[in-house]
Amino acid sequence: MEKIKVKICQGTTCFVMGGEVIKSIHDTLVEKYADKIEIVPVRCLEVCHDADSFSQAPYVYVNDEVVSAATVDKVISVIESKLKNE
């Protein structure tokens, strides 16, 4: 089974809008899904740069699905649905 790729944005906007959450998303995922996912810290992917989209930061990508205003629960539910579909 191919590992799910979780990209956590390390850009400035995501950090300012949710630096506190980014860390807990990272830690929770490592603990919960160690062997099923691969966590990749990425630089700003620039979705936050148009118009008002900054307000929906922090962004996390689960494979190619964008999770906006990411929280631990939101990211977990997307990962769970991907795991179920495999």
Partner: peptide, 13 residues
Amino acid sequence: GAIFIAYGIEVDT
């Protein structure tokens, strides 16, 4: 932080 967002400054670059 809000100034960095508004100015579009990526501090890590």
